[in-house]
Nucleic acid binder design. Structure first.
Lengths: 210, 210, 210, 210
DNA sequence: TACTAAACGAGACGGTACGTCTTGTCTTGAC
DNA sequence: GTCAAGACAAGACGTACCGTCTCGTTTAGTA
């Protein structure tokens, strides 16, 4: 199907201790704890939704003290965010041979994800938080940048093959594609299957044709 | 600019006693109270944001007891939602003479609204809540149905004038238009001005052309 | 067993419209309502205790509007008080032939009443309220004055027969008798049967002997 | 005047972890907080009375969160009760040389306490609560046991000196003494000064003489 | 081998909002 | 002018959660 584009692993909680290669004194952080916390948060996210997650519950399920969580993440929102990101698999770079085919793969995946209530709930929770918290917004940008770059690469190939107009606004096309899937699933509240993805992609490609 | 399409006034708190014209016994609900509550909620919404609104604060500002609020709305979320809806003005039905022109008016308005942090915040809060609360989702559907119908009417006229293909999936086009504006403003986080609306509309119309 | 001393019927809620023999205009008060309210209050008093009684509950059980209650009593406390008084039967004036015998009848009755949880609960509730509300205190004085007068009459007869010292402080003896029963039942929390009453009376009479 | 008998310090909120000398995990309870809460409650009790005390007010005055209160006491009533107990000073054991003199000291103190509105209000509040709440009743028993034991010791000495009959029912005498003071002050609503205490004690001692 | 420093699980802390409940008053139409 | 029904303002109740702060313990690196 194609190669995999590694998502830039910029997590919220990282303190970026780049300048200090030597170990700090004292007991080192338990790496397993972070994993357990993220796992617990992910589980709870699926069970009770974005707003229903409680730091106490995460701590309890992870078998961890609350301080251990707050030592790594500055707030509940950021934790849940990282949990979301950690559980999001990187999308593959498709190579079907055609621009339309490649786009259908990428946005079919996205549609599949957002057709599930959990996926919707988490993404919308993040988006709501992003309107208030700049860091969350940047994180979201990072998260979506992956799909964005993949799409841009596909469209650029489309320009070379003549399927897409040379002067097309690629950013706009990217937003059109993403927006169509997002709106259908989350606002209109209707599932988006392969056929709908097909229509979306072909309509937009017609609009972007030379 | 055109006539105004009255939004169907289906509020969350209504008990829909349509079938019972005869009065219930006891003191009737004070209609002024509901108005004062919604007004106070709307003000607070603008001042402190979706998450910062407090039932106590609303009650105090409206000069109302908390029970009077909870008699009408089952939770803070629903109240804030209704406040949002109550303060949303109905959009005008444009008559610029061309399909593209009309669409630019409608979605320019939407873009204007979502380019402001408050507008974004409230809408995203509602969308997040809608993934968990079915009633909110229905409410949102009602809320957006207005724009949807206006758009559909415009596109239908486009079919008659030959600007839009006769077999176009109007629902899809509507979602494409709304999604583009929503995604740009709320996910990509970039303001959408008249020029961008122009591009969005023309690209989608090209894709929908006969 | 003896005659009955009619308790002075000064209820809290009475508006003393003595001066107005002519009918007032408008719908006359429903006398049955007052009865139903007092009955409901008495029942609830027994079921949930002094503090657990609710005006709403009384109104509902009596099939009466709250206003109908507040038209007659100025507060919940006063209502409950009247309910207590209304359900308190007047005590008989005993004539056993001896001072000790008569006292045993009177205070045996009192002990019987206070040996039941309900009786204790109501009396203590009233006493607690009396420390705060002067009207309640006066009412209580009225309520107890009956037993007081009966006891005084018995003791006076005792002075004549030489069983009680001529210079005895009758008020003090009355308080000793009442206090003994009250303390045993309500503070020490032990039931007071005929034997204990016997001991109380004989001990105090010995102390009051010439 | 005599030595002081330490009142057994059985408070309502204690979890009685007597058998566990080893510390429980987690941050230990702040003892200072309990003190501050009780102090605040005691102050408020004096200022606004039994019914006027508010948990929020106590928390605020103590500089403490409400949860810190509810972690220690299950309800407002229990808290106020403990506050009462904590502020009750132990009574001294008198040694005047005579039974009558000793009793006058003890019950003079009691009369003094109950002659003040606050003292009456708090005690009656507790007694009323005790009729409904078994724990409160036990607490009250503990509270009064002190005076009871002191009185019993005095009366026993009276038996040895021949001032009290050898077969006297000491429990009964104790209840007679306490009841007399309680009834006079709280039911009859008349202050009890040294003279009245004198009469009470001598009357009862006459009744209990050999 | 000790000492130091930090992380750990547990849970108490101050603060704040929630949604419920009760009180005493007010407002309907019916009687 | 009373009645039943029930809405109203006010405000206390007890719960839940957040993010911080202690406890005593554990785990490393340094002396």
């Amino acid at each position: 199907m194609g190669t995999t584009l590694r998502r830039p692993a910029a997590a919220v909680g990282e303190t970026a201790a780049v300048e200090v290669p030597s170990r700090r004194p004292g007991r080192p952080r338990d790496e397993g704890a972070a994993q357990a916390i993220l796992a617990a948060a992910t589980e709870l996210l699926a069970e009770v939704g974005f707003a229903g997650v409680t730091v106490d519950a995460v701590a309890h399920r992870a078998g961890v003290g609350k301080a251990t969580i707050y030592r790594r993440w500055p707030s509940k929102e950021r934790l849940v965010l990282d949990a979301t990101m950690a559980s999001t698999e990187p999308i593959p770079v498709p190579e079907t041979g055609s621009v339309a085919g490649d786009l259908k793969v990428v946005y079919g995946r996205m549609a599949e994800h957002l057709s599930q209530p959990d996926g919707r709930s988490v993404l919308m929770g993040m988006l709501a938080q992003a309107t208030v918290d700049e860091v969350v917004h940047e994180l979201l940008t990072t998260l979506t940048s992956q799909r964005k770059e993949v799409t841009r690469a596909i469209l650029r190939r489309g320009i070379e093959t003549g399927e897409v107009a040379g002067d097309a606004d690629l950013d706009l096309l990217i937003d059109l594609l993403g927006g169509a899937v997002l709106y259908r699933t989350c606002v209109a509240g209707r599932p988006v299957g392969p056929k709908t993805v097909d229509k979306i992609v072909s309509t937009i490609l017609r609009g972007a044709a030379p």
